[in-house]
């Protein structure tokens, strides 16, 4: 019998300026093979990773933002966004991609992955994890 661990990836960096966002995404996609209880948190500049309408043609770098929409396929169904980080940047949930997952047991019904949480709620979630990966 295998033990399922609760893993949370905490994303705090903007995309493209540094490699953190892409590295985190790759680790999440690879790590998904281990079938653990995975969640992602987007905090500070990390919320910029999910901003809609990214177009990297002009900077000659691959736009990896479409891959976030595949997270549901990888059984990553819990995406937490810290509200204070959005507020500080003048953003709302409408500015972000709307990520969902499909429930195979309910005829592929589309379910919500995105959860807006307060600082306190996120602090509680962090306390509940077995492992936290910070990017």
């Amino acid at each position: 019998m295998s033990i399922t661990k609760r893993l949370m990836y905490v994303n705090r960096r903007a995309p493209y300026g540094t490699i953190y966002a892409l590295e985190s995404l790759e680790v999440v996609l690879i790590g998904a093979a281990f079938e653990q209880d995975v969640s992602l948190a987007f905090v500070d500049d990390g919320v910029y990773q999910l901003v809609k309408g990214q177009n990297t043609t002009g900077i000659g770098v691959k736009n990896f933002s479409p891959a976030y929409a595949a997270l549901g396929d990888y059984d990553v169904k819990k995406i937490y966004i810290e509200k204070e980080s959005l507020d500080q940047r003048g953003l709302s949930m409408d500015d972000l991609q709307h990520l969902t997952w499909e429930d195979e047991n309910e005829d592929y019904a589309e379910k919500e992955s995105m959860h807006l949480v307060s600082r306190e709620e996120l602090a509680d979630l962090l306390e509940e994890q077995d492992v936290v990966f910070s990017f």
Partner: peptide, 11 residues
């Protein structure tokens, strides 16, 4: 710089 704005989804 415009290309850096566009990359980050900013209008």
């Amino acid at each position: 710089l415009g290309p850096d704005l566009a990359a980050r989804g900013m209008q």
